[in-house]
């Protein structure tokens, strides 16, 4: 299990889309290693044949009537946008030239 107790922090931070400072990277490496070691308790539990619980009281297929309801206007929806123009959110270019 020792392999699991250390984490490739750069790989996972990229999965989480969080840029870390060098200081944070070093600090988290140690702290998260401790937390993972603490999680090793779970590996000892006998869960053979046990169904997973996703929700305490599972509910499936909650249907809504297919009717149109009032939504936000473009103006309201863009109130908190960091940059907006012509009723749209402005973002950096995502397509390579």
């Amino acid at each position: 299990m020792s392999e699991e107790s250390s984490m490739d922090i750069d790989y996972v931070a990229n999965l989480a889309r969080i840029e870390l400072t060098a200081e944070e990277r070093q600090k988290f490496q140690g702290q998260l290693g401790d937390v993972l070691k603490y999680f090793e308790k779970l590996q000892e539990v006998d869960v053979e044949g046990v169904e997973p619980t996703a929700h305490a009281f599972p509910r499936y297929n909650v249907w809504d009537e297919d009717v149109a309801v009032e939504g936000f206007s473009a103006e309201e929806a863009l109130l908190n946008a960091p940059k907006a123009r012509s009723e749209q959110v402005v973002v950096p270019k995502v397509v390579e030239e």
Partner: peptide
């Protein structure tokens, strides 16, 4: 997944 199963217990 293991945590979810243990949650059942």
């Amino acid at each position: 997944l293991r945590a979810q199963k243990t949650r059942t217990l």
